[in-house]
């Protein structure tokens, strides 16, 4: 496992994968948008407003997927002290927060005409709002420490504690009476969505997942490069060389 999670290997692998994930994400999302907006029928009850589902549901899936990934990476970082795992968790948080925010807002835009309300404090909506705050808390906690390793460790513990919320989100609609409807796709007995509507939904879902991989690789590369910059600066200070502002070249340096 260490063999694959070593930063140098990751840099090489992600450089090769980046153009493919970028192309696949753009193609899948474009196809999903086309089918969702033009190539699928209106719903027998919701009419055209059903199309909001094609951005709302994949965003909500990704909100939970990103958190699960972040908690898993945090656990690996805590237990096996793997530097790449910690950085992967850190790189995931803003992506997950964006998806959660999108799920909340698009859900609100659907809820107003269909349910008759922008927001209600039912178990599903409240637990997703808590998820959003967990992401924000995680990001804030990392930045609250001067020492990056200590910040990552504290945030990893928060990510693991907050993971209790993920099954609550998933099963809230089954455990309690909620305004929100139960699951339509991942449920016993198969999806209760017409195939013509399931196709754009799944395309968008897979597209969002590949988009996540794309942005994750970009952000993880950024974290690794930033760590190298920090290490180089530290070495510079230790070796007594004058501190160099970025972009400037000190006298006597060999090109």
């Amino acid at each position: 496992m260490h063999r694959f999670a070593n930063p140098t290997r990751f840099m090489r692998l992600s450089a090769a994968l980046l153009p493919w994930t970028a192309g696949a994400a753009l193609a899948l999302i474009a196809a999903g948008l086309y089918l969702g907006l033009f190539g699928s029928p209106a719903d027998y009850q919701q009419g055209e407003s059903v199309r909001i589902m094609y951005v709302h549901v994949p965003s909500a899936w990704m909100a939970m997927f990103c958190y699960t990934f972040m908690a898993g990476a945090s656990a690996v970082g805590l237990i096996w002290k793997h530097p790449l795992a910690d950085l992967a968790a850190k790189a995931t948080a803003p992506v997950g927060a964006c998806f959660t925010l999108l799920a909340l807002i698009t859900g609100s835009l659907w809820g107003k005409p269909m349910w008759g309300t922008w927001w209600e404090w039912d178990a599903r909506m409240t637990s997703v709002l808590v998820l959003f705050f967990l992401y924000l808390g995680y990001i804030a906690l990392i930045n609250a420490f001067d020492d990056p390793t200590r910040g990552l460790k504290a945030a990893a513990i928060l990510a693991l504690v907050g993971f209790a919320n993920v099954p609550i989100i998933k099963f809230s609609v089954d455990w309690w009476n909620t305004l929100h409807q139960p699951a339509s796709v991942f449920k016993a007995g198969g999806p209760s969505i017409d195939p013509s509507m399931l196709a754009p939904l799944l395309l968008m879902g897979v597209g969002f997942t590949v988009y996540f991989l794309w942005v994750l690789m970009l952000r993880l590369r950024t974290e690794i490069v930033a760590a190298k910059v920090r290490a180089l600066r530290l070495r510079q200070v230790r070796s007594g060389a004058p501190a160099t502002p970025s972009g400037a070249t000190p006298l006597g340096a060999k090109g």
């Binding site: 988009y211 952000r219 950024t222 490069v225 190298k228 600066r233 510079q236 160099t244 970025s246 340096a253």
Partner: peptide
């Protein structure tokens, strides 16, 4: 996506500048 790409380019430029300085 734009923010993430920009951050990567910025970090890479900083690293390149440091390496050429050392």
């Amino acid at each position: 996506l734009v923010v993430s790409r920009r951050a990567l380019k910025g970090a890479e430029a900083e690293l390149a500048a440091l390496q050429s300085a050392i």
